[in-house]
């Protein structure tokens, strides 16, 4: 530990750090602060108020946003659930089936969606759906979301699985549990933090997605990100800032939860 390089001694460390943090977070802070602006201007500060938050829920655009938010929520829950189930099965196969032919290929295929440029996936999905004559709508969004959520759900689940030695399942089977009971009563409870963490990550990725959704959504179907984008095209109003801030808050909560759940499991393991 003592041998670690003290980064602070590098010239320009402080400047670079501040610059990076500024570029990353200043826009978010501006949006969050101005969402509480009483004035309808997006540049002049007119005092603190919750006007624009009220506007989100009761203003002229409220029905549009509410419908979009509901769509987003339904899709995120369904996509994250399906992706988590698939990712859990994949993780069990990858970590428990021993060495099998095509294991490396399987690993690559599961994680490839992370590397493929999103716009390529978006175009490909759209081409695919129209090729098989699938009417675009909520269903196409859901299918596309399940697909790109799988690797995000897979990573925390597989990480968790790798930290569970197979002696627990062996002990269960030694104690007269069938393989199915060993999975249900021993492996699954031990995997739960990883599964929850994977679900939350997939949920937030689905909730936030704009690009793929925008390609595969049908006419008139909106999710929250596409609805916001549509609204912004007609000029930025402070109510957009309020919605954005709300989404930011939801994201922060979910990502923190995902991280915390993943960590509690780790702590317990270390205490053993």
């Amino acid at each position: 530990m003592a041998a670690k390089v003290d980064l602070r001694r590098f010239p320009g460390f402080l400047t670079v750090t501040i610059l990076c943090l500024f570029v990353l977070y200043a826009p978010l802070i501006v949006v969050a602060v101005y969402s509480f602006n009483a004035s309808s201007s997006i540049t002049n500060w007119g005092g603190v108020s919750l006007t624009w938050y009220a506007d989100v829920f009761t203003g002229p655009e409220a029905p549009k946003f509410q419908k979009a938010a509901l769509n987003s929520l339904v899709i995120a829950v369904c996509a994250a659930t399906a992706a988590t189930v698939i990712a859990t099965l994949a993780a069990v196969a990858m970590t428990r089936a021993g060495r099998f032919k095509g294991k490396t290929l399987g690993f690559a295929l599961i994680n490839l969606p992370l590397m493929v440029p999103e716009v390529v996936t978006a175009v490909a999905s759209l081409v695919f759906f129209s090729a098989i004559g699938f009417t675009t709508g909520l269903m196409t969004i859901l299918i596309a979301h399940i697909v790109f959520c799988i690797p995000f759900a897979y990573l925390p689940i597989a990480a968790r699985m790798q930290s569970i030695p197979d002696m627990f399942e062996q002990a269960a089977m030694d104690l007269y549990a069938t393989p199915r009971e060993a999975f249900k009563l021993v492996l699954l409870p031990l995997m739960t933090p990883g599964i929850l963490s994977g679900f939350l990550l997939a949920f937030i990725i689905s909730l936030d997605d704009f690009l793929i959704t925008n390609f595969v959504k049908g006419a008139g179907v909106e999710t929250l990100p596409t609805a916001i984008f549509g609204s912004v095209k007609q000029g930025i109003k402070p109510n957009i800032m309020a919605i954005s801030t709300l989404m930011l808050a939801v994201s922060v909560v979910f990502v923190s939860l995902s991280w915390l759940i993943g960590r509690t499991g780790q702590d317990k393991k270390q205490a053993r």
Partner: peptide
Amino acid sequence: VNTVFQQYALFPH
């Protein structure tokens, strides 16, 4: 038959 494992393998949950 039952086994006492080297690392005990007690179910932590």
